[in-house]
Simulated scan of single mutants.
Amino acid sequence: MSTATLFSGITERDWQTNDPEGTVRLALIGLGWWVREEAIPAIEQGEFCETTVVVSGSTEKAESVKQGSPTINHGLTYDEFHDGAAADAYDAVYICTPNATHLEYAETAAELGKDVLCEKPMEATVDRAERLVRTCDERDVTLMIAYRMQTEPAVRRARELIQDGFIGDTLLVQGHMSDSLLELIPDPNQWRLDPNLSGGCSLIDIGIYPLNTTRFLLDDDPTDVQGRTVSSHDAFAEVDEHATFQAAFPNGVSAIYSASHNAQGASFLKVLGSAGEITIEPIFFPWDDRELVLRKGSATDRISFEQVNQMTEEFDYFGYCLLTGIEPAPDGRHGLRDMQIIETIYESAADERWKSVPGVDR
C-alpha cells in the first residue's frame, strides 16, 4: 500500500461494508463526566445507535440528563435498572461505572437479554473479568470491550502498513500516556484512587491504552512482562501514581511503556521496524488531533487528516456489529487477556522481576 493511498482513504470505515437498517437503542449506565460530555454527544453524531435510557445513582442526575436529549425517554436509578424497569426501551447497555462494579451491571443486562458494551478495563480483577465473560456467554449476549483505539482510523491504517511490511520486521514498540488526574477531576476521594473500586490507577486506567493498542497493531500478545510503579503524592498513597513496564512479544519484539496520572499530558505510540518507523502522536486523547508520521530511510511523511470522533466510531462499530450479526473484535476474551497481562505487571512490580503471563502461547 502506498502512502498516497493511505492518505486518501484514512478515515474510511473499512469495517463497514453495507448500510444496515435500524438503530441499536442504548441504556447508558453511569452518568459521570465521560458519559455526559463524550459518550452522549458521540452517539448523537453517529448512525447506528441512539440513547433511549440513562441510569444513575442519582434520580436528579438521571432526570436532568434525560431532559437534555430528545431521544432519552427514561431516567432510571441503579436499583430500578436491576429490577428490569424500562427493559423494553433499550436493546443494549453501555457500562461506564467504576471498574469494580462492571460485573453487576453486565449480569443484570445479560439476564435481561441485552448486549453489553463495557468500558475498559473490563473489571478490577481477573476473577471478576472471567465471571463477566462467563455470564455473557451463558446468556448468549454479545460482549464488546470499549477499546476506541481499535476503531481510530490512524491506528487501523498503521496496522495495515505493519501487516503489509512497510516497516519490515517489527522490532520495538514504545508507548506513553499521561495526564493530571487531580486537575481533570479535583476530588481526592474519587474512585480511581480507591484500589477496591479501580483495581489500580495509572497502569490499569491509562497504561492499558498503549498495551492494548500494541496488541491490536501486532495481532499478538506479550508472553513476559516486567513493571515498576511509583507513588509519592498523598492522594496516590494506595494506588500507582506512575508506572513503567516492559513486554516481550513473540518473534523477538520488545515493548517499553510508561503511564502517569500526575504528569504533563502527553500520548504517543511508536513502532520501529527493520526498514521503517510508524508514529502516532498524539494518539490516545479524543480531543487531540492525531497525526501519523511515517519514516523510511531518509524520507519522512507527516500525514494529517480530517479528524473523526473516536467515541462515535466506537459506538457505531458496536451498533453495526449488532445490526449485522458480526462478532465485535474486542470481545470479552480479548479484554480478559488485558486484565491477565496487567495483573502480571502489578505482580512483577511487587516482586521486582520479570514474570510470564499465564495462558499465553510461547
Rank of each mutant, 00 (worst) to 15 (best):
275 A>I: 10
287 W>V: 10
83 D>Y: 02
118 C>E: 10
113 G>Q: 03
26 L>P: 03
257 Y>E: 09
262 N>H: 12
1 M>C: 04
8 S>R: 15
201 C>Q: 02
216 F>T: 14
233 H>N: 14
163 Q>E: 14
250 P>I: 00
170 T>K: 08
311 M>W: 13
274 S>Y: 08
45 Q>P: 00
198 S>F: 11
219 D>C: 04
67 Q>H: 08
312 T>S: 06
285 F>H: 15
229 T>N: 07
96 C>E: 09
69 S>N: 14
80 E>G: 09
181 L>R: 07
173 V>Y: 09
232 S>V: 03
128 R>G: 01
27 A>Y: 11
70 P>H: 11
2 S>Y: 06
181 L>V: 03
105 Y>Q: 03
198 S>Q: 12
206 I>M: 06
123 E>A: 15
171 L>H: 15
141 V>Q: 01
149 M>Y: 13
154 A>W: 00
64 S>F: 03
314 E>H: 14
11 T>A: 12
331 D>G: 03
356 S>N: 07
230 V>E: 10
149 M>C: 13
298 S>K: 12
261 H>P: 02
105 Y>T: 05
255 A>N: 04
304 S>R: 15
353 R>W: 04
67 Q>W: 02
315 F>L: 09
178 S>P: 02
211 L>K: 00
49 C>E: 02
98 P>W: 00
108 T>H: 09
326 I>K: 15
155 V>H: 00
69 S>I: 05
88 D>Y: 06
174 Q>A: 12
213 T>D: 01
166 F>C: 07
235 A>H: 09
20 P>M: 12
76 L>G: 13
185 I>T: 13
3 T>Q: 07
359 G>S: 01
17 T>Y: 05
4 A>H: 14
166 F>N: 07
349 A>S: 15
330 P>Y: 03
61 K>W: 08
163 Q>K: 13
237 A>S: 12
86 A>I: 04
9 G>N: 15
301 D>N: 09
181 L>F: 05
